[in-house]
């Protein structure tokens, strides 16, 4: 792999040949998600390179949770992530954009009623 491959990608996502594990070159990439507290959602924090899942978990802890930032970690092989494409964003999300009746503001409430 070299810098001549300029394909932009999502945070972390490597080309297919990025999965070769050798001592001399790059280890596979793992996306890291941290949960800040119990009941909170896991959020994307960044990525780490690691040889396997256990190694990725330890690296993720050392890089993204040095100050109690996380009570739980997920590591996911970057190649396993499928993401929507920005170019299609408009049409792809269109079905959700023209339905004002899915929002509470769409509905009229008699004047003076405070429950809502």
């Amino acid at each position: 792999m070299s810098t001549t491959d300029t394909t932009p990608r999502y945070e972390g996502q490597l080309p297919a040949d990025g999965l070769t594990v050798t001592g001399a070159t790059q280890w596979p990439l793992w996306e890291v998600f941290t949960q800040a507290g119990k009941g909170a959602p896991h959020e994307h924090a960044g990525s780490v390179h690691a040889t396997d899942a256990e190694h990725a978990m330890q690296n993720a802890r050392d890089v993204y949770a040095r100050r109690g930032e996380a009570v739980s970690l997920w590591v996911v092989p970057a190649t396993a992530i499928v993401a929507s494409a920005p170019g299609d964003a408009g049409p792809f999300f269109d079905p959700g954009n023209d339905k004002a009746y899915r929002h509470p503001q769409f509905y009229k409430v008699p004047r003076g009623v405070r429950v809502f």
Partner: peptide, 15 residues
């Protein structure tokens, strides 16, 4: 590491 990870999103390799 945070910044290398960010740079890799531009299609370069940390290595």
């Amino acid at each position: 590491l945070y910044i290398y990870c960010g740079t890799e999103t531009l299609g370069v390799d940390r290595h």
